[in-house]
Amino acid sequence: MSIQHFRVALIPFFAAFCLPVFAHPETLVKVKDAEDQLGARVGYIELDLNSGKILESFRPEERFPMMSTFKVLLCGAVLSRVDAGQEQLGRRIHYSQNDLVEYSPVTEKHLTDGMTVRELCSAAITMSDNTAANLLLTTIGGPKELTAFLHNMGDHVTRLDRWEPELNEAIPNDERDTTMPAAMATTLRKLLTGELLTLASRQQLIDWMEADKVAGPLLRSALPAGWFIADKSGAGERGSRGIIAALGPDGKPSRIVVIYTTGSQATMDERNRQIAEIGASLIKHW
């Protein structure tokens, strides 16, 4: 067993022997301040990774656009098919120029040779490549099948209805392509620590998230040296922004954090800054 596999296998073990965790309302004060600064709703939840206990939450059962955070769930569904012998990570998928959609920095470079399922998941999570996500959605049967996968996990809230990039439209009061912070946090925890996926697939999923290259201005910008984070960000229309993450000190994750916002007129930089400040408060009061 590799060191990384050992780390993920012992996530519940280490967490069980940690000192009790206590909620700190100071972080919620910052979440509410972010709402004021952005002029928009902000949803927040913080779960203990081992027990699933909610440590703090704000608007945990209000719907927010998922945006690209759905790509972690998508690759979880792909990995479940791999575990069941219905898919192979090494299978190569070929596609054409007509398949390319807006923001496809990886797939646009491989029109000639195609990409493997493993490479597509890596591109979808680490670079948020939209064509990679659409190609992977095709392998599982489309958005409705991802929703069905989530329902089978016990998540009857999260739903995907459309493809990239239309799913980022974020129309107010439109339930399409949305989740709730509580539902997303619980589902992410199941994917990373539950028995739904094999140990190898859980490790692969967290490795992809740990290698995320496009979430630097968010929670990662607030992390002290030595902290662990595996995350996936999302951005959408109407001032929408979000991030889902597993993080913790001492090089291992111990909490799940989900943050979503929508309806702001603020710039992307300002949305990023507010999420980073929430992260800084979380870490300060850990």
Rank of each mutant, 00 (worst) to 15 (best):
G76V: 05
S233L: 02
S122M: 15
M67T: 10
L111D: 07
M67K: 01
L247C: 07
P20H: 10
D250W: 10
S96N: 14
L120I: 06
E119N: 08
L219C: 04
K213M: 14
L19Q: 15
A15F: 15
G76Y: 05
R63I: 09
A200F: 09
Y260N: 01
K213A: 15
G239M: 02
Q204I: 10
K53A: 14
T187N: 11
I45G: 03
V42S: 03
D250Q: 15
L205S: 01
D250F: 12
G85Y: 08
P249E: 08
L160C: 11
A182S: 12
K30R: 12
K71N: 00
I45M: 12
M66Y: 04
V214F: 05
M209C: 06
E119H: 09
F149N: 06
M209E: 00
H156G: 15
N98I: 13
D161M: 05
Q88A: 13
A182F: 15
T267I: 09
P12H: 13
A246V: 13
F228C: 07
R92A: 09
L120S: 03
I206G: 10
V117H: 03
A123S: 10
G242V: 01
G52H: 06
F13A: 14
K213S: 10
F149H: 08
L247E: 02
K32I: 11
A124M: 07
A235R: 02
W227K: 00
L136Y: 00
T139Q: 13
N152Y: 13
Q204G: 05
G39C: 10
K144F: 15
G216D: 08
S57E: 13
P172D: 13
R220D: 03
Y44D: 01
L74V: 11
W286Y: 07
L192F: 12
P165C: 09
T107L: 08
P172A: 13
E237A: 15
H110K: 13
T193A: 15
G85T: 07
G194I: 05
E169T: 13
K252P: 05
F14D: 00
A225L: 12
F149W: 14
E145R: 14
Y103W: 15
A276G: 09
Y103I: 04
G154V: 04
V214Y: 05
V82M: 06
D207G: 14
A225C: 13
M153R: 07
R241L: 03
C121Y: 00
A16T: 11
K232T: 01
S122Q: 15
E195R: 11
M66I: 10
V72D: 00
S96C: 10
L79I: 05
G43T: 01
G141K: 07
A222E: 13
G39Q: 11
G234S: 07
S96V: 11
L192C: 08
L205G: 00
I93L: 12
A84M: 10
G216R: 08
T267R: 12
L47S: 06
I125R: 00
I3V: 08
C75D: 02
L120R: 00
A246E: 06
F6P: 07
F22S: 15
M1R: 01
G236Q: 02
F64M: 07
R81F: 09
N134L: 02
H110G: 08
E46F: 08
M268K: 06
M153H: 10
T158P: 00
F6S: 08
G90T: 13
T139N: 10
P165H: 05
I206T: 14
A245E: 00
R271A: 10
M127S: 08
R91W: 04
S51D: 15
P25Q: 13
L79Q: 03
L146M: 13
D99T: 09
S281K: 14
M153L: 14
L160A: 11
S201K: 07
A9L: 09
D269F: 11
H94A: 10
L100A: 04
M115L: 13
A123L: 03
F22N: 09
T186R: 14
A266G: 13
L79Y: 02
C121P: 00
E102S: 13
P224A: 05
M184K: 01
Y95R: 01
E237S: 15
K32C: 10
I54C: 09
L146I: 09
N98R: 15
P20M: 04
N50M: 15
D33E: 13
C75Q: 01
W208A: 03
I171K: 14
W163C: 11
Y44V: 07
R162F: 03
D36I: 15
T267A: 13
D212Q: 07
A266W: 06
S281E: 14
A246Q: 05
P253K: 08
P224Y: 04
E210A: 10
K32H: 12
S201P: 03
D174R: 03
L73D: 04
A245Y: 01
Q86K: 13
L38N: 06
G76W: 05
I259V: 14
M67W: 01
G85M: 08
I243W: 04
H156D: 14
L191A: 06
D83R: 03
A183W: 08
W286P: 03
V117S: 03
M184C: 06
Q86M: 11
Q274P: 05
L55N: 07
K30Q: 10
I283Y: 15
H285G: 09
H156M: 08
T27V: 14
I256P: 00
V8T: 14
M127N: 08
N50I: 10
P143F: 03
E145D: 11
A246L: 15
A211P: 04
I256S: 01
G39Y: 10
M153D: 04
L197G: 04
L136S: 02
L197N: 05
T198L: 09
R118Q: 13
R162E: 05
R273A: 10
E277G: 10
S122K: 13
A124T: 12
M180P: 03
I275S: 01
Q86V: 14
D48A: 08
D99G: 06
Q97M: 15
Y260D: 00
A123C: 08
R176W: 07
A84L: 10
S51T: 15
K190G: 13
A185Q: 00
N173H: 12
V78N: 02
R189Q: 14
T112H: 14
I54H: 12
S240W: 01
V157D: 15
L120G: 02
V258D: 01
A170L: 08
N173G: 14
S2R: 09
D36H: 11
E277K: 11
L19G: 14
R159S: 08
L111W: 09
G239F: 02
Q204S: 10
I140Q: 06
T107V: 08
W208M: 08
H156Q: 14
E61C: 07
I278P: 00
T186E: 15
T186S: 14
A124C: 08
D99K: 08
A16D: 03
D113E: 14
L135R: 04
R238Q: 12
V29S: 10
P60C: 12
A148G: 14
M1I: 07
S104V: 04
G242D: 00
R238N: 15
D99W: 07
D250E: 14
L79K: 00
V78S: 03
M1S: 01
E210C: 12
I278N: 00
R159G: 04
M66D: 00
Y103S: 06
E145G: 15
I3C: 11
P12L: 12
I244W: 00
A133H: 01
A77D: 09
L137I: 10
R63D: 03
Q4H: 14
E195D: 14
L282I: 13
E87V: 09
D33S: 14
E166I: 13
G279V: 05
E62V: 08
W163V: 13
R81Y: 08
E61D: 15
I244H: 01
P217A: 14
D174K: 03
E237Y: 12
A276V: 10
S80C: 09
L282A: 08
E175G: 10
A246T: 12
D83K: 04
P105A: 05
S281Q: 14
R41S: 09
Q37R: 14
D48G: 06
N168T: 07
S57R: 11
N272D: 09
W163A: 10
A133N: 02
D212W: 02
R202E: 10
T69S: 06
E35S: 05
V117K: 01
M66R: 00
N173P: 07
S104R: 03
L191I: 11
M1V: 05
Y103T: 05
Q97G: 12
D113H: 11
I3F: 11
M180H: 14
R238W: 10
I283W: 07
